[in-house]
Nucleic acid binder design. Structure first.
Lengths: 274, 274
DNA sequence: GAGTGTCTAAAACATTTGTTTGAATGTTTG
DNA sequence: CAAACATTCAAACAAATGTTTTAGACACTC
């Protein structure tokens, strides 16, 4: 079935690529002990932001691999599937990259590079904190639940968060830690007297609300089958998370303040919900 | 190399391996044209809560498979690994169950059965809603972040939530939907005028805060390396989620109430955070 | 004690999958 | 043009893995 990608080979393979005679000449290439592939053609653009001239095949491999890795994960993705989608030969991955694992790392970098060209998390750095919080939540929801399907970047990242691989560390430093840092700065400005624990837990509470919609999408789709992932729904989610979070932050602030004087006050606070 | 598990060798003699009479009573089946293995021995206890007398090997397979599936997922788990941990032969899985996939389904049921013997989500059904919310969050955090390592049940469930398989549907009906239902009931009692959307989003916000700590554990462990998963930490998390959520619920109630009159009121509400 | 049903051990089998290989083709360069 | 380099191709290879098979052990029944 992998024979699908026939169209590309227009030039050469119209001609019968002469069969046979494969291993028969044992010593065809005298010199060149190193397998030619040894010096990976991408050595000149390993991780730098350099332009990294994109030969068509290499680019297609990255893009196809992004989709497949995002859908299946590093382990379950098959190089055959990737190559099929990229209209490339099986050997292309081992030629352009060093192998599947290395391709994965390149895809992670590629995804980060692409995402960094997107909208920033906070549009207006000078706005008051409460407004930047709203912007952050909106941007985060949009990035994570991006309605347009080719958003494999976010899916790849989220998969990596749940099932880490060798790429997690660079992903954290590249993307996740800065994102948490932005939110942390906003929260600290909102509640200057929050201690480290409170800051951490509030950050997690806000991010967690957003990620739930992504991580548990299969479950939520079954529990609430009526709710498509429409743009309106995303707006509704963002508005809800913002509102819920501002209330939560206020409660945390009061809890913390009250905890010093009387631990029982928290119960009273909760009661105000009714 | 997979021959590693040699110790298994003397299985029968070390363990007195039970004398007998396991399903012998099953004498009911006189004939048996089918290859003996064909009719899986578990046909008499497929999914019912029946006692399902547990022959040592079968039980060990279920337990080992639970761990391995929880760690690796259905796809990446290998029957060889499971059998090694269960001190069983490779063929045992195909004998006792029909194969890997079927074993997985049995493990999911087994996990649900075990969890249902655990603490209920709400200890005191007659308590006021706000108190039941606290109980729910505590129980949920405990169940999801259970500190004692043999908590493969929760890990298996969470894995299934992120990467669904054929078992997701029964998992949803068995466990997830009832859990959401309990929380929904509590929230509805707290905010009787919440509409369906608000109810759904608040439920997701609360569950999402809790699940974040599990789903993103690898990331959080790197971002906040100081925070072990100690019992005290779990208590802290539960208290935080409860406090944050009560505040969030209150804010949502006010937002909803205000939205009908003036949409701009929300901004004012958020402002009170400072 | 032979027979039967239940269970396990070890090897074999079939399939999938990442990687390698040897050659052909295309492009550039002297 | 010829040599060198870069890229692609089809086939083969090697390892992992789910499943099946065959043989045998054990406990109980008749």
């Amino acid at each position: 079935m992998a024979k699908g990608r026939k169209k590309t080979q227009s030039p050469r393979e119209t001609r019968p690529r002469h069969p046979g005679l494969r291993s028969r000449t044992a010593a065809p290439r005298p010199k060149q002990k190193e397998p030619r592939r040894q010096d990976c053609p991408d050595r000149d653009c390993p991780d730098g932001p350099a332009p990294c001239l994109p030969p068509s095949t290499r680019q297609r491999l990255l893009e196809a691999a992004g989709h497949v890795f995002a859908d299946c994960g590093l382990k379950d993705a098959t190089v055959r599937d990737i190559c099929t989608r990229a209209d490339a030969n099986i050997a292309a991955i081992n030629y352009h990259f060093k192998g599947k694992e290395s391709l994965y790392l390149h895809v992670v970098d590629y995804a980060h590079e692409q995402m960094s060209h997107g909208k920033p998390m906070v549009l207006d750095a000078d706005a008051p904190a409460i407004q930047r919080l709203q912007q952050f939540i909106q941007a985060f929801i949009a990035r994570v639940l991006d309605p347009n399907s080719p958003s494999w970047h976010a899916r790849l990242m989220l998969r990596e968060m749940v099932e880490p691989s060798a790429a997690l560390d660079r992903l954290i430093e590249n993307t996740i830690r800065p994102t948490f840092g932005i939110l942390r700065g906003i929260l600290l400005e909102l509640n200057p007297d929050l201690d480290a624990d409170g800051l951490r837990l509030c950050t997690i509470s806000i991010i967690g609300q957003c990620l739930m919609h992504r991580h548990c999408e299969p479950v939520l789709a079954r529990l609430f089958p009526c709710c498509e992932r429409t743009p309106e729904e995303l707006t509704r989610i963002a508005a809800h998370v913002y509102c819920f979070s501002t209330g939560g932050l206020a409660a945390i602030q009061e809890c913390r303040a009250g905890a010093a004087t009387s631990p029982s006050r928290r119960k009273g606070k909760g009661g105000r919900t009714r």
